[in-house]
Nucleic acid binder design. Structure first.
Lengths: 234, 234
DNA sequence: CGACGCTTTGACACAACTCAACAACCGTGG
DNA sequence: CCACGGTTGTTGAGTTGTGTCAAAGCGTCG
């Protein structure tokens, strides 16, 4: 019997099937798991450390703090997501990362990263695909905040999250566990926490989705897609 | 006497000095200039063509069109900027690109791109730095739309633009040519064109900057930075 | 000259924010 | 066991920033 695939391996496999050797190398790359507690700040804005991370389990939060103290969430990494790849290239982190739940990550340094590209270029390409996809999602996020209403934007956010969770097998039966607070959501969607509450109520009353006790239930994805103007990611 | 450096070479040189051979290779890479007319749509959303571009002269506009027809501008590329690198990796363009002025570009296909990384890894690293920097700017843009007021956001936009133009020698004496319409600005800033007009008037009345006849004049960068909560890009 | 694109301004409407109060739900310690 | 403070969620009332609609001013180009 095969060992279980890591979330990242599962995700990359949807892009291109990986050989046994590539999978083994990937496993090795992620071999030393680091357990982090809920709320730990792994990467600080302005950090010079040249590390990227891969999230194995748990949820995280990538965000920027503006000079006036406001917070903008860039994305909520879920298992299988890469974190801080850009910071490695830039030698400085332009954003912070903290865990929203207890989590397990692997740390990858810059040298190790170049190794991947030299030794297993196909694997490197798959990882590059994955981070490019995340970028595309960020751009979508930008378009949403700039041009969608609060209601559309919120619906869109949950649909996109669903899609990302599905890719690593964490979404089934139209529902998933979601540790985000309304405050977290607000900082991601560019809204006030209070308004997020009202929008969630609207979505509930429209019988599109519910979000109670850290559990999201999608009641009517089709209608929700129409409302959000949702297009599949690639 | 040395031949004049291309805008891209100028920009990369601020990251790391390039050797004569690297510069020669870069020149060769950009050897076949393509002239495009104002308003040409070089890349369409959803295109499968595997091309990236480097902008030599003129201004461009990278944007997304949402299902309801709304437009969100991601960035306005200026000389020296790379366009559509992500699309090459993803095999599909998640956004469109059109020229705002008559412009000159070079086209780079995927194979040629891999060549760069294999033959001149240092040059490849410099290009990777440049696109990562653009990503960081996009993330900043996201934070601005999500968490800054229209006034702060607009001021911030012009400061960031200034910084990018300075890097390729197109900003001097506190002023620069700027072919953007207020409508373009609106689609970049997530505002209505009418409100952009009001904000520009405010900035003028505060004696921070003016924008008339396609010319931006910065009157007081220091005060403007304070207003915008501007932090230098790396 | 007229047509067109871009800018400017005013009046009004509405989406989203702020403030304030309260309810529900923890985990902790007495 | 219950009392407690802290975090999160909920709701209402009033305010404000930004959008919409409408109309007019300007340049430029054919």
């Amino acid at each position: 019997m095969q060992p279980a695939l890591s979330p990242l391996a599962t995700k990359l496999a949807t892009f291109m099937p990986l050989t046994r050797r590539e999978n083994a190398y990937l496993d090795d790359l992620l071999a030393t798991p680091i357990a982090v507690e809920r709320g730990a700040e792994l990467v600080r804005q302005g950090d010079k450390g040249h590390f990227a991370y891969v999230l194995h389990s748990g949820w995280g939060c990538s965000f920027k703090i503006l000079l006036d103290g406001a917070r903008q969430v860039i994305t909520f990494p879920v298992p299988g997501d890469c974190i801080g790849m850009r910071s490695v290239v830039l030698r400085t982190s332009d954003h912070a990362f903290s865990s929203l739940t207890d989590a397990v990550v692997s740390r990858i340094d810059a040298n190790r990263m170049s190794d991947v590209f030299n030794t297993f270029p196909r694997l490197g390409a798959a990882i590059l695909w994955s981070v490019s996809r995340d970028e595309a999602i960020t751009v979508d996020h930008l378009a949403g905040i700039g041009r969608r209403t609060a209601l559309e934007r919120t619906a869109h956010f949950f649909l996109e999250l669903t899609e990302r969770l599905r890719l690593v097998g964490l979404f089934a039966d139209d529902a998933f566990e979601c540790p985000l607070t309304q405050h977290d959501l607000a900082d991601a969607l560019g809204l006030s926490a209070i308004h997020v509450n009202r929008v969630l109520r609207q979505l509930r009353e429209m019988e599109l989705m519910t979000f109670k006790n850290n559990r999201v239930v999608l009641l009517d994805q089709k209608k929700m897609r129409v409302l959000a103007g949702y297009e599949d990611i690639l």
